[in-house]
Structure formats: C-alpha cells, structure tokens
Design a protein around this nucleic acid. Sequence first.
DNA 1: CTGTTAGCGCCTTCAC
DNA 2: GTGAAGGCGCTAACAG
Lengths: 333, 333
Amino acid sequence: MNHDNGRAAPPTIADVARLAGVSRAVASRALSTEPRPVSSDKRERVIEAAASLGYKPNLLAQSLTTKTVNLVAVVVNHIHDLSDLDLFDRLIDQIQAVGKQVILVRIGSVARVEEFLRNGVAYHVDAALVFSDFADAPTVRRMFRSELVVMLNGLHDELSPVVIPDEHAGIFEAVADAAAKKVRSASLVTGRASSPVEQARVDTYREAFAEHGIKLIQTVQGDYSYESGHAAAAMLVGPGCPDAIFCTSDAMAMGILDVCRADFPHNRPSRFRLYGFDNLSLTDFDAYPISSIGYDKSLYVRHIVESVVNPRGFMPGQPPVTVPTRFVPRLTA
Amino acid sequence: MNHDNGRAAPPTIADVARLAGVSRAVASRALSTEPRPVSSDKRERVIEAAASLGYKPNLLAQSLTTKTVNLVAVVVNHIHDLSDLDLFDRLIDQIQAVGKQVILVRIGSVARVEEFLRNGVAYHVDAALVFSDFADAPTVRRMFRSELVVMLNGLHDELSPVVIPDEHAGIFEAVADAAAKKVRSASLVTGRASSPVEQARVDTYREAFAEHGIKLIQTVQGDYSYESGHAAAAMLVGPGCPDAIFCTSDAMAMGILDVCRADFPHNRPSRFRLYGFDNLSLTDFDAYPISSIGYDKSLYVRHIVESVVNPRGFMPGQPPVTVPTRFVPRLTA
DNA sequence: CTGTTAGCGCCTTCAC
DNA sequence: GTGAAGGCGCTAACAG
C-alpha cells in the first residue's frame, strides 16, 4: 500500500515487468495509452503489477525517446501581461485538459532574451505560446528548440501560426457608438509607438474617425499602464477638451477616469466620453465601468489550444487565425 | 552563424566533441558549470565548438542522470490566486534568476488532485510551491515525486518547509489604528470558515478587539471575492452601522467601498472606517485607497526561493519561517 | 503477439 | 588530464 516510506528509489518499468513476469517492452506497451499489441492477460498482469508498485512513468525518460514532453511554454514579458487573468485561467485549464503542462517563462527585458539563448534554456517543449513582444518567432524557436511557436503578440511569421484578435470590427463599432452620440472630436491615447500592432491599431482608429467625420484633435503616447493614463490626463482635458477620449488599453482609461472623476458624476460622462481597449475583468468593478473593446476569450483560447494539439493543421505562409472583436458598452461612453 | 535553417537535428554534445577533437567526456566536463578537470586549451576549443554549433544541452536528458530538472512547480487553485501579480512577478523572476523554470499547475478543484495523481504528472520537479489549499503536503509530495514541497497555503506539515506571513503584528497595528481614532465598535467580514488560516486570522482580530475594548458587533462570511464584499455590504451598514469594518481580504473591502461610495466623500471615511487585508497592488489605484495589512513581498519571496535553493537548510519539524506583517494606512481608515 | 537489441543525450565512474 | 564504457528509464525497431 505504502510505497514511498523509506528512501527506496521509485519503481521503474523494469520492476513492473519483473513482477508481472514479462519483458520491459511488453510492460511498456501494456501501459501505453496508444493501442499497442499485447495479449489481454499479460496486459492485465502488468497493470496490476504497476498499481501494486505505485509505478509512475518517468516522463522525462519517456520524452527522451518519444521527443514529446507534454510541456507548453507560455512566454510573457512580465506577469503583468497576465492582467487578463480570466483569459489565462481558461488557457491554462485548456492546456492541462489536453494533457499538457505549462511552463511559464518571464522574459522581463530584451536583454534577457539573449541571456536565455546563451544559457540554453532549452527544454524541448512541444509548443511555445508567445505573448511577449520582446522576442520574434525565430528567436523563440531557437530558445525552445521547438518548431511550434504560436505568436500571440501580433508579430507575424511565415513559419509559425498566428492567432490574433481582429481589431477592426470592435474599433469601428466603438467609434460608431461615439458618432451616434454626437461626438465630433476625439483624442487618442496610445501605447508604445514601436510596436507594429499598436501602429495598426492607431491606423484603424484614424480610419474609423475619418469615416464618421470625427476630428482627431490630439494623440498622446502612453505605455498601456495605469500610471501613463494618469499622466496623460493633464494633457487631454484642458480648455480644448474633446468630446471623447479613446485609449488603446483599459488601464490607461482607468488612469484618466481617476483623474477626471469630477467629469463622471455617477460614473456617467458629462464633459467627454471615455473608451478603453481590452475589456479587462477590472472593468467589472463598479469604480471602473469603462466602455471597452473585447473579444470572445473562449474562442481565442480554443484557437490557441487547437494549434497546439493539431500542429499539422498549419501550413507555412497561412494567414493568421483571427477572433473578431466587438464593442462592449459601459457607463463611461 | 545560422545553425537551424534546415530540418537538421539539434547538435548534441557528441557533435561538439567531434568538432573540438576531444572525447564526449571532456566536452561534458568543459561545458559543466562545476569545476571539472580539463586542460584549458581543450576547454577553450570545446566552448568555441559549442558556440559555433549553437549547442544547447538537452536539459531533459541531463536530468536523467543528474536527477534534477531545474523545474519548480507552482501549484494554485485558480489563476485568480495570482491576483497579487506583484508577488508572483517577483517570485518567477527570482526562480528564474537561480536558473530554474516555473511550471504552473492549476488544480481547479479538489477532484482534480486525484486526477493528477492517476495521470501520473510525475515530472520530477525539484520543488513544488503550494499556494493551493486543495492539496496537503503528503499529497503534493506524491504528485510530484518530490521531497521538497514548500507550503505557502497555511497548511502546516512536519516534513515540509512552511513560509507564512505572521499576521499578528499587522492585525494588532490595524486595530490599534482604529482604536486611536475612537473606533468603539466593529464588524468583521471573513473568508471561507473551513480554512484553518482564516480561523487563526479571525481569532487574532477578536483578540485585538478585546485588547482595545472594541466591541465586535457582527461577523459576516464572504469568500474573499469582490462580489462577496458587495453582497456583504447590505448586511453591514444598516441602522446599527459599526465604527469600522475589517475585511480579511482587500477584494471584499473593495466591494464594500463600491457599495458605500456615498459614505466616503473624497475617498475619506464619514460613517465608518474600512480596513482590508493583503495590500494588493489594486489598492494603488486611486479609486481603491484601502487601508490594508501587508508584508514585505521581496522578503517573502526571498525566503521561498532560499528554501528551494538550499533545501538542506530545512529540518523536519522545524517551525515555519515567518514574514512580519504591518499595517498600511490609506484613505479609507 | 513477444522478447531482444539499440539507442535517445548526457554524465559519471574507472582505468589509464 | 583524458577517454572508454556503462547506465539513467523508456520506447522503437527488429527478429522470432
């Protein structure tokens, strides 16, 4: 019953085979999840022996021959990238549901990428899901010795599958909402200008403004953070205050809202309307009822896990898998 | 320069040895971090060869002989346990800084614990850091085949090191703060009654109230969540509203604050004072300036990582390592 | 269907 | 200081 009292080494498949009176190969086959040829009586004996020994396969040794570890790397800049905990909770749950485990890799800074490469953090993970934009696909492929890199940071790559929210619809819906509410002028608070994703996002806003005859008064650069929203507020709501402020992250919108509480009696806009982006779960708190742009997280996660489970579904050069975004109205608009 | 264009298999130590014109053993020794006898010219040649090949040791194969994977499991109930992202960011950073990687295990429910055991998620992790209270130390030890389990969920265990905040000081400071502000009556909002940690916490509050002559009017049970705080508010601030409300989590305090905004003009208390617990980074947002009880997170993380790096520092039966808590005043008190 | 034989990639004796 | 040989635990190829 009790099989790990002493300092005894964990049983190996050789122990199981011996106890069952079969060869190691048969034991291996009997214990395999795949259908393998074994006579049913031997299979039974093996299984019983394994149970009585409390045998657990050494997955590391296993991976050495099968070349698959059931390990998926999730690569982020900082853990704060996980601010959408809801999304990550689903993601991890789903990855575990398909029998894999998550190794969480925090890059921290661009410099660390090089460090990782030098130090050889080279687990042969089955796949790497890249949320960090500090590393491009080829680099990540080298880091993990894995061909299967799923880019979720907006950086495209011919050789790797890409899953990405299609921001067009959501942005246009949000701007249309503003236009319907007689918004004629707007300011835009952006993130890091260097990011191509952010570039595209800003362009989409511009396009939508143009289409609805909304005048873009001013663009302020932040860094997606609450603090940068806080700081941006001063530049935005002076005398020439716009009818609406659009932010490319919810956190920045939260910062602005906190500076301008007076402009939102009972959380409703008076002087200007406020739109965020991301649809963080934070926007469910009463104090931050920020109209935002979001997407179906389960669908997004499903696409990601699908490309991990079924890597052959991807052909080099294939266009990104997209998840449509939509406008999520709340009080601030 | 480019060493993985084709479908070529990653270079092994044998390739390095061949290129350097030495035996595999010498190559292994030269590449080892430990000091091993190798003539310096050969060492140099090996290192150069490894670099030019872009050689990265296969950590899995390595672990097969060294019995150490440089993998640390972080076990949580849900990802929402990570609500203190600040803490986790440091933790992961520090773990990576000592050359290990984090495998994030989400238990989800008590039923899943058994499932993990059956499926033999037997990665030989070097250590498991248990935040989940769904699993006790013996179970986790079996799950991971690891002797080194660090309990961070408040569940004690003779055989495993425990790191835990010492809540006494912080609670007494908070209650003293209230007493100094003429608080004479208080209500307490608690988490799951089943948890022994929570039991102890509640007892400490009671003790502190008694010492300062504060009358405990009412105890309401929540579940640490924002929503449960929201719900509790109705029961608390009726006619016999206390002078202060103490919550055993910041999230619950946030829920109460949102229901009772009117009682906090300019975020300052009028009818009653509000105290949280955890000192979440959320309390840095202007909208939730909740007085709380926290501890030095870097110190906490340092203790954890120390017990992972230096497991022999722990003796069975040793008392928990504690991190002192302290009161963190903000507007709501 | 079964058992034997070879490795997977690495490290560690152990002789030299 | 060096290299040959053996083995970590497991599974894929073979013959039988």
